[in-house]
Design a protein around this nucleic acid. Sequence first.
RNA 1: UCCCCGGUAGCUCAGCUGGUUAGAGCGGGUGACUGUUAAUCACUAGGUCGUUGGUUCGAAUCCGACCCGGGGAGCCA
Length: 486
Amino acid sequence: MTRKPMTSAKSFTTHSIRELLTGSVPLDSNVTIEGWVRTRRDSKAGLSFIQVNDGSCFGNLQVVANNELANYSSEVLHMTSGSAVRCSGVLVASQGRGQTHEIQATQVSLLGAVENPDSYPIQPKQHSFEFLREVAHLRPRTNTFGAMTRVRHAAAKAIHDYFDQHGYFWINTPLITASDAEGAGQMFRVSTLDLLNLPRNDAGGIDFREDFFGRETFLTVSGQLNVEAFCLAMSKVYTFGPTFRAENSNTTRHLAEFWMVEPEIAFADLNDLVALAEDFLKFVVRQVLERCGDDMAFFAERIEPAAITRLQQIIEQPFQRVSYTDAVQILIKSGKKFEFRPEWGIDLQTEHERFLTEQHFKAPLVVTDYPAAIKAFYMRSNDAAATSDDTVAGDTVAAMDVLAPGIGEIIGGAQREERLDVLQQRMQAMHIDAEHYDWYLDLRRYGTVPHAGFGLGFERLVSYITGMTNIRDVTPYPRVPGNASF
RNA sequence: UCCCCGGUAGCUCAGCUGGUUAGAGCGGGUGACUGUUAAUCACUAGGUCGUUGGUUCGAAUCCGACCCGGGGAGCCA
């Protein structure tokens, strides 16, 4: 992107630093850049080196400003970290080591000064992530969050590209909902009622007929049920949008507000879904590696040494696959002492998942066919319990989780129960009020077909890709219990 | 929600068997020096030791309560 500069400097064209560093602009061109000062080093020989970053790429551009500039001593020497500047000059090959290009400045303008340089929080040094969360509005100016932001963008773009190239339609499912979905967790209430003066019904409860929508409403915990309806018309669809969970979860992998990707495919079974998950993840990872080389190199150097190599392994290796029943057997036979003893019928604990992905398989792992009792009502009942030995296995459903080393569950999905009578039985058994799901049951009454889908936690994906271990550091403004700052 | 750990300068931390005036590095300011690379060197400013009670002649240091942050677990994506 090139454009005219905002000021009068004639024959200088404004460029992103990315353009200048990647060699798409010939040397000796007159150029202008706009950005924020990372560091400034002064030489009393009469020149200063200003490292400028504009977010367009990981690298800074070095601007060489000498004392012949009219504002050299009055402004240039006071351009501390964080100052906003516009620099014009000639793009040249750098005389010094450490960078290929630099600008010999003919004009350096201070657009926005840093009022209190001694208290500006972002210094050219390592900060703790805990501290940076307290200055979430300024942390985009750090290397780490610049890199994370570009990776996050590249991943989101890759997700849309993958589905677009494979004939999927992006469905914008509602964020406000009246159903409590699959009971996927605690929900945030949406209401315009006056909390200090609640309307009451005859039974003494709150009269939600007086509320904005005439009934109780919440923020969505999943777009899945809604997107299924479009799946059973458009064949291949997906959602990608914000999701809300009011769970009191205080961990490095939970947010109250996060983004979720939920593809849903018709005329498909669990095997098709597993194949999709693998192909999809590999595509996204490959795109990020191709587009964000500098950023990923930074994560590998400073955050997680294996950041790049483990992504390359994901691309190259086939995902491992194991049934829940076999996974439990592996855990039992491992002889390893777990805090929670592995047992058929109990959900895999974090320590179990970690053992399977990090020690046993040492790869992303797809676990399938979980006990029906611990899974949601809409998951398809398997016809027969599949076991690889003499273990007695109970009823299972065609569910699947993709577990990634270091992160745990990154994808959860299932083939959906398309048989009306089986679905109704299951809802009854799980005490789900069928009245709220009549429209959902309609999908089984009118032209039902086998279909399947999964949910991918977008932040968990970014966390896995970058090696950033706390999910609060891979989203711009994290919302967690007790904190909605910024 | 449960279990641990922590809160000292703008940042990262030391000091914590109670005892003159609470320290260092980085960052800021000033100066020296150099086509510099998180530059280097010197000087300098900067602190209600999370809040609040208590113990004590005396509390950053010991005890209680509260607030905030972090890690782990559960729930899940």
